[in-house]
Design a protein around this nucleic acid. Structure first.
Lengths: 325, 325
DNA sequence: CGCATCTGATTACGCGCGTTACCCGACAGC
DNA sequence: GCTGTCGGGTAACGCGCGTAATCAGATGCG
């Protein structure tokens, strides 16, 4: 049998007050005058009964829920993402918000449906949603949709920049960039590449020679041949998996790493240090990113849908130097 | 400004009927006699207005929500898991249920809180929850909590069994088993190990020599030394990441693979084929698993919390033979 | 014609909660 | 004594929806 739910009426009865009083106490309504004694009785009763307000009823009455929906794009995400989700969840929990995630599958139900189904008041993505989607989400009940056009992926440029700067500082003068094969990575890859290109230009070098590298040895060997023809000596890989594919390709070519060609990855996946040779890569502190995002959400929610200003959201990335560069 | 929500009253007005009729039509209430003409008008109006029932109001009135919460344990999960989540989400969507996930962080908010916050009617985990948690979840509003004690991890035995059987078929007579370092993997690892041990016993061999291998070269080399002392020639790794660590350790030892020692992984992560040598591993079809889980959920929900019978939930794993065995 | 039956829809209630408007007693000022 | 005022709390409404109870009209049947 469905366990009987504890309602605020139960708490009210147990505390010997009215339901309204319970609501005032538990929500800490300002401007309401409640005796310390009464407050104590209510809180005690709520604790004793393990009372949890019924979320649906609450958001129906209040007009907004405390649910934040994180839409994770349909791409082979690494373990790093789960760290980010955890951090974001705890940061939001500090504001009384609950984070749940949804993986956007190609054949799954549309995001607005999911948003409506759980009555989320905030929808957070990784890159900005297009205008139509934003509209649909708002009609589905979302008060706030992030990130907005202007923020979003821009921190990713730092990653590419740092990769390139590292290779340049190691003496490389002609760089390559390995784009991922998966199309869903395209926006993020574009940003990272842009950052790498910026670094090259600032150092007075040509932009990187970009080639696409799938997660197969063949693909990597072909790309490496291409780079060698252009006198490339160091390659920034979009991420560590792509970098591992490059290492396999270099092994196939019989080229020493980093003497024959240097490789730097991004994300610092667990197996990066286990590669042959151990992979130099770029990582960043997800803790800060998550806290910043949480703050953006909270202020945006308070500002009733207006996402006015926000600091640049630097992710403060850094190079982890191993043996592949 | 908060976009005005479309309510069922709006649909009713547009269709020229009462709100109750709208509800009957949209929920396909059996036993209700609605003219085909009326039904058409209602559906058309709902479509034109892009009406979505307010989830909170719906679940408040109906007493149950259509939300399924998937609790993902706090462990470094691979990309395989997201495939599973996607499959499960689409399978559930076919029944009108919405899947959202929550990563159980150590410092995050407790699962019952999350469950209550989104008013989930089903909570699904990877392994069975302990009795206290189940109780808390039910009081938090969950009608159904899965998996139950008896199902759950048992399919994982097949994986370990298949690993061992493969090595045995390749002529190995003394096997090792590499346990993961992360404590959260312990239950799953125990099951996989048990499967491997079963296979050994059935083949008339000793159970595998089990050692723990962290994701570091040092740890792997030490374990390999241990196995060599016990005349182990083939090792089942808990998962592919552990297997990659072993390959790094074998490289360090200067041992050929598989001549000096064979390694088989599990999960078939993207970089498995990129390892040196390409990693033999075990994978399984998440599609079937997800569909089976979805069916279990739906029948369990219909049965009002009674999870009576369920088929054995085989995950139908198979060996992907590459060069490490 | 009178009553039962069936059809196709409507009216009314309640889910649990937030919140506004209101009430009651105590006490001060004139 | 009458009127404010203020502290401490309560009655009552509505959020949007599902659904039980009800109703008006058409039809069947003696």
């Amino acid at each position: 049998m469905p366990v009987k739910r504890i309602t605020s009426s139960d708490v009210a009865r147990a505390a010997g007050v009215s339901r309204a009083t319970v609501s005032f106490v538990l929500n800490d309504k300002p401007g309401m005058r409640i005796t310390e004694e009464t407050r104590r009785r209510v809180l005690e009763a709520a604790r004793d009964l393990d009372y949890r307000p019924h979320a649906s009823a609450r958001s129906l009455a209040a007009g907004r829920s405390d649910v934040v929906l994180l839409a994770i794009p349909d791409l082979p995400i690494g373990a790093g993402i789960s760290r980010f989700v955890e951090e974001l969840a705890t940061a939001l929990a500090a504001y009384g918000l609950t984070l749940v995630t949804h993986l956007a599958a190609a054949h799954g139900r549309p995001l607005p449906d999911v948003c409506a189904a759980i009555d989320a008041s905030v929808v957070v993505g990784f890159s900005a949603f297009d205008q139509d989607t934003v509209q649909a989400l708002r009609r589905a009940g979302a008060d706030l949709v992030l990130p907005s056009e202007d923020e979003g992926l821009s921190p990713m440029r730092h990653v590419g920049r740092l990769q390139a700067e590292h290779l340049i500082s190691r003496g490389h003068r002609r760089l390559g960039y390995a784009l991922p094969g998966h199309p869903a990575f395209a926006p993020m890859a574009g940003e990272r590449l842009q950052g790498a290109a910026d670094a090259c230009v600032e150092a007075g070098l040509e932009p990187p020679v970009t080639l696409t590298v799938l997660l197969e040895v063949d693909s990597a060997t072909r790309a490496i041949t291409g780079w060698r023809e252009q006198a490339v000596t160091g390659v920034c890989a979009f991420n560590d998996e792509t970098a591992v594919a490059l290492l396999a390709g270099l092994h196939e070519h019989g080229l020493a790493v980093p003497a024959g060609m240097a490789v730097i990855g991004a994300d610092d996946i667990p197996t990066a240090r286990l590669a042959a040779p151990p992979l130099t890569t770029v990582c960043w502190d997800l803790h800060d990113v998550a806290r910043h995002r949480a703050a953006t959400i909270v202020t945006g929610l308070a500002g009733a849908g207006r996402t006015d200003h926000h600091t640049g959201a630097s992710i403060n990335p850094r190079v982890i130097h191993r043996s592949s560069t």
